[in-house]
Design a binder for these strands. Sequence first.
DNA 1: CTGAAAGCGCTTACAG
DNA 2: CTGAAAGCGCTTACAG
Lengths: 367, 367
Amino acid sequence: MSESSWRRAAPRPTMRHVAARARVSIKTVSRVVNGVTSVGADLAGRVNAAIGELGYRPHHAASALRRRDGRSSTIAVVLEDLANPFSAALHRAVIDAARARSVLVLAASSDEDPADEREAVAAFTARRVDGVILMPTSADHGWLATELAAGTAMVMVDRPAGGLDAVVSDNRAAAARATAHLLRRGHRRVGFLGDLRDIYTAEERFLGYCDALEEAGFPFDDRLVRRDVYGSEPAERAAVELVTGPEPPTALFTSQNLLTVGAVRALRTLYLHRDVALVGFDDIVLADLLEPGITVIAQDSAEIGRLAAEQLMARIDGDGQPPRLHVVPTRLIPRGSGEIPPPARRRRPNRSSPPSPPSPASLGDIA
Amino acid sequence: MSESSWRRAAPRPTMRHVAARARVSIKTVSRVVNGVTSVGADLAGRVNAAIGELGYRPHHAASALRRRDGRSSTIAVVLEDLANPFSAALHRAVIDAARARSVLVLAASSDEDPADEREAVAAFTARRVDGVILMPTSADHGWLATELAAGTAMVMVDRPAGGLDAVVSDNRAAAARATAHLLRRGHRRVGFLGDLRDIYTAEERFLGYCDALEEAGFPFDDRLVRRDVYGSEPAERAAVELVTGPEPPTALFTSQNLLTVGAVRALRTLYLHRDVALVGFDDIVLADLLEPGITVIAQDSAEIGRLAAEQLMARIDGDGQPPRLHVVPTRLIPRGSGEIPPPARRRRPNRSSPPSPPSPASLGDIA
DNA sequence: CTGAAAGCGCTTACAG
DNA sequence: CTGAAAGCGCTTACAG
């Protein structure tokens, strides 16, 4: 039990220690610590001196335990993968919004595993977090009702679930816009790459793709579609299959950031990146520096995080309104890849053909 | 005070409620909840039934308050910017390592502001976190001693501070390796872009750059160096200045990821990206898909996070060894930009000259 | 194997 | 303005 100088030796001082040193009651210390102004200057001075000398720190959990509302002033965030840029930005926005109210934030990654998700939420509720922001692994979240009943506020993020508060992007409309962006440039065969179809956003974006086809009067072609693609490597393989198959697409809509990365990699490997148009969902670092730059639908992950945090804290503060669905607008950012025109009609894209210059006349972006 | 069905109405059940329903003492409930096996099957069954019916959840903080060790089983992470990919990956690795021991993780961003940093640490210690992983804003961290004395374990990450445990990359050696990589290909004028020099890593990487010059017997030229560059836009301007100035560098070593992004943008704008060699510190998403691909020193942020978490948890468990400095190796990943040879001697790089093919004979990577 | 009493660090609810 | 008693939800330390 040898403690070096950089390890604590003495037990942590408590209010009792401070009270003894300042020769006041523990209650007076409590008043000073909590900023109650009715304490006399003399006593308050002695208490503050003792706090400084002892290095006293209030014990937040003990305080919360006895307090009326029992708030922990802590919330939690459960996202698919905190290391993913989308989740990381969202997470940071939650922390910033929470900080403004002196609320701390715990976090976990679910990796789309419902068991991990439930385990994380259980661990958080055991710590009596005041609320949880959750990116639900599936829409089937009956178990959430139990958590709610137990007094933990909940707000879904990125995907709705359980009929609770949710903050999402305008996925379907944005996907339709992305697809229309390609159709408007003359593409008739637009391929689709989609994430696991259990995931709400994957389904919505697929529906948006279908919407745009229907709106434009083009038939849906199953052979141009690959769904349930999870991660960038499967996406790369799927893109290669699509583009090297018979009747290949002249454009791709990749409906998630990892899928976009895989598709870009595939097109470059095949040297088709200047021939096959591409619009991705989710912005990507450096996408503007590629040649061509990658046209994307950018989500406002920071705004999603901020709104989710605000909604959650409102619930914690007793907001009893019916559940609310916040839809956050996205932005289509044309950078080149989405503005590649289709090859001349009745000709298949050809590797040895020179890159066709984009048609400036077709660069409008309103769907 | 109208509570909808999705808001809790009844107060949270406690052990007392469970005990009453199961007709046992509160202590027996405690035993069952904590997995003490000596409880009779009959009583244990009644208790578990009551727990299920009531939806009882243990109150972790109350438990910790009374427990001998008083552990909160919570740690905290304070990084420069949680949304930065390096920090996000590190953070995630910390969470994964902590989860294996049922430890939860709080997080905050300091944005290199010492006041924000201290505020965050104070908030965490008030919650009685067992330890903090900190990316210190400066090496001057006398105040950390107080936190340590108060019983909070601390491990620095990315940069050492206060003579405490730290986990860092082999910054200086890696920077020397990166610079030598360029020198070995014949570059004689290698430019340097560095972050704020207060930051330990910025200084170390600068020293590594100097080491390599000295090792190779080349003079240090102040005019090739820009330090205190913070963020990608200033980096872009600095790179433009360097490269368009008199006696411009034929290669750049950009010693942080945002600086690399800025430099890449500058070179592309000037259409010099195939003429001026570039090695960056920190890997970047999609760096391999640029033309040329960006040669980088990749840090193992996940390993840094994992080691920091392990070290911290060892301290929390009473490890009393002297402070330890973990140095995590980096990896040089050649992708093209770092292998661009210098232009023919006595000729300035020329925008209209065709890109020179990399010399395969010079592609070794050991410094 | 089971339970009544005391107490973790703090605040509430009362008194003075 | 100040303080003694009780109690937040739980575990420790004892008894039986």
